Amino acid sequence: MLSRVAESLFWMSRYFERAENTARFLDVNFNLLLDLNSITTLDHPNYWKPLIMVMSDPGHFGTLYEEYDAQSVTDYLVFNRQNTNSILSSISMARENARSVIESISSEMWEQLNNLYHFLQSASPQQVHNDPYPFYKEIKNASHLFQGITDNTFSHNEGWDFVQIGKYLERADNSARLIDVKYHMLTHGHEHHVAIVRNSIDIIQWMAVLKSCSALEAFRKIYLSKITPDNILDFLILDRTFPRSITYSICAAQEALWRISGSSSHRYANNVDRLIGKMEAEMTYTTVDDILRKGVHHFLEEVEQGLIKVGEQLHLLYFAYHTPKIEPHDVTEALPFTGLGGGRANWSQSQQQQQQ
């Protein structure tokens, strides 16, 4: 497979997953505020700033908007093209990558992605602000439909494996960021309190954390009504059966990488397989007590850094097809996943050129 095709499939999948995650976080936040409407102020910055911290760069947001409220955060995360992580930017870039390899994907995949792109082009900020639920539902359903179409109309070869790698690396990164921000806010910095869920407000907000990962029903089947921070950490980080947990996502990405290279649990073929295998082993033998002793923020920060390193090695091994000798002296090779100051990932050089 050509490096160009593999890279475009990877980013197409990753951008689509990012758009769905953003839509779900915003949808859950709106519903959370409806639940808290009688006891809090809807536009309080504490309920909107975490979305920017999870999904984008607070510094960049501050240069464009004066305050964190429903209208400004929605505009920034949904429609603002200056935000490379907005839903509109993500779907536009997913479509651009799909268009560049349209001969390699199924016509049904292209049609589904193209339909969502035109749906977003016709939407307005005022429409979303007045009635957000159907808008976010459309994006989530479109993403689920795209994944189902991909699984059923796209040959399960190397190209499909790169689609899976992009999806699960993005999913693990989003889950780690969400848990990190929300856990710190809800525990008020006291990570070792076992009975931190004190009243109805705490319970509603912890349920919102689970809903942000589409995990509430699956969580209840295991833990019933025991909504505690320890149980939530165990489920969202370490569970090996739930498709949106960090461990599941890392394992799924590992399996796809190993199918491409032929690595196994006893032998790795390259550095990216070694790094993802190391992460999988650490997640397998880690317990919630280990996470709490290390500190939730420190542990999740290590996970995010591990994903960055995997992405860098993935790029160097499979996507770095530019020849430095023939490039201008003022152009430096850019690696994906290298977020600045804890921000979201930068794109590879080819993706930046496409966006321009």
Rank of each mutant, 00 (worst) to 15 (best):
M93E: 13
R14Y: 08
M12C: 04
H193T: 15
M283F: 15
S225T: 14
L88S: 12
T187N: 09
S143A: 15
P50L: 03
N174I: 01
W160H: 11
A253L: 07
V310A: 08
P58C: 11
M93L: 15
T323S: 15
T284E: 12
A218K: 02
R267A: 13
D43I: 11
N85Y: 01
A215L: 01
G277C: 13
R4A: 03
H315P: 05
F10N: 02
T84D: 10
F25Y: 08
D239V: 03
Y321I: 09
T241V: 04
D27P: 01
E170Q: 14
S265P: 02
L316V: 06
D35H: 05
S89K: 06
F242D: 04
S3Q: 05
L275V: 10
H184E: 13
S13F: 02
T332E: 14
Q254P: 01
R18I: 04
F79G: 07
D202I: 09
V54L: 03
L210H: 03
R240N: 12
R274L: 13
P132H: 04
S214E: 01
E138S: 12
E217W: 00
T332V: 13
Q147T: 13
L317R: 04
Y268W: 12
E255Q: 06
R99V: 05
D290Q: 12
G277R: 11
L224N: 14
R198M: 12
S263M: 08
L33Q: 08
E67D: 14
S143D: 07
L32S: 03
L64N: 09
F219I: 00
I246S: 00
Q126C: 01
G166L: 06
E66I: 14
N80M: 03
A123D: 11
N130W: 07
Y168V: 06
R293K: 13
L300Y: 07
V331E: 15
D273S: 12
M279R: 03
N85S: 09
L257A: 01
M279N: 03
L292F: 02
I204M: 07
I165G: 06
Y117D: 10
N29T: 14
N157G: 02
A345L: 10
S350D: 11
K167H: 09
N231S: 09
V296N: 02
R99Y: 08
H329K: 15
D57E: 13
Y47K: 03
R198H: 12
A218S: 13
A253H: 04
M207D: 05
Y321R: 09
R18E: 06
L113K: 00
G166H: 04
N157Q: 04
V194G: 01
N157C: 03
L292R: 07
P336M: 11
P132F: 04
T22P: 00
N80T: 07
N21L: 05
I102S: 14
T241N: 10
R244F: 11
R99P: 00
A320S: 15
L88K: 11
F61M: 08
T150I: 10
Q121F: 12
F146D: 02
V54I: 15
